[in-house]
Amino acid sequence: MSTYSLSDGLASGAPRTSRAPWLATWIRESGVGVLASVAWIAFGLSCLWWEDVGDWSRTHSLGIAALVIAAVALFGTVASDYLGSAGRALHTRAPWLVALGVFLTLWEVATAKFAWLPLPFFPPPQSIIEVYTDDLPKLLDSVFASVKLQLGGYLIGATIGFLTGVSIGWSRAVGYWVHPVLRFIGPLPATAWLPIAFFTFPSSWSASTFLIALATGFPVTVLTWSGVASVSNAYYDVARTLGAKPSFLVLKVAIPAALPHVFVGLFMGLGSSFAVLVVAEMIGVKAGLGWYLQWAQGWAAYANMYAALIVMSLLCSGAITLLFAIRDRLLVWQKGTVKW
């Protein structure tokens, strides 16, 4: 079989490649880019072709914007060779552009045009765009409030957790007293403190800061501690024979050696503090994205909820990206770290 089909394939394949080799190459190189452009044209046309079933003001602009994106994608694909790194970036992301275009087209058709999905609960893309353009000031205020609260609580929690972890890992006496407390209180979800915190703290803002710090502090403490505790004695021996004092052993041996663990703790703390932030904002704080979500739900403004969710996910993802960037910078000496 192999001999026969091989010669057969060669015989029939040879003239085809000699007839239009550039076509095959062109399809392989630019096919997906062109497809992306087609998908976005479809999205644009789906906006402009049919009448909306509801009353949305941004349908026309969205359709035009989709066509512009399609044009840019097409131009970028055709002129890829002349665009350098931007061209290559477009090339690697083209499959995602296709998927996004198809998804948006389906979404547009299923909601705004034929209402296959029940309407107030599944708003069309243009209504979310409308939120970003028309409700921008309130949304920005919420973003600002959330970032401020999260940043304050996280920094306090991370700092205290780090210092506590180093102290427990280094000093037996501190470990004796702090470890039982940590075991007792640490595993408690920070949100369980919510009712008490809102009573005992002078303001809901300080109560939320405390809760976020608590949620961050526990994983940071435990992982810093385990990081310091797992530093090989050989490092201390080397440093001591070279004349290191105890302060040098802590600052220049224990802490740098424990940093990979510390970053795992910071990452976990970030995740659990997001959860606390949203809950705190929904229940007590009268600002922030959690509050915005709650408020939008009260008005049955579903588009606003989706809009806020998208912003929230961008912020959380951005925060983790930032943390990983800092880690990659500090831990360049590590091989094979996970790329976020």
């Binding site: 490092y235 024979t241 070279l242 000496w333």
Partner: peptide
């Protein structure tokens, strides 16, 4: 000064910073 069987270089320090360790500690 001891040189151990394993080099026990500090992985978070560059070669230069590893060699500088003793002078830095002092």
């Amino acid at each position: 000064v001891v040189v151990f069987q394993d080099p026990t270089l500090f992985p978070w320090r560059s070669v230069w910073d590893n060699v500088a360790l003793g002078l830095e500690a002092q």
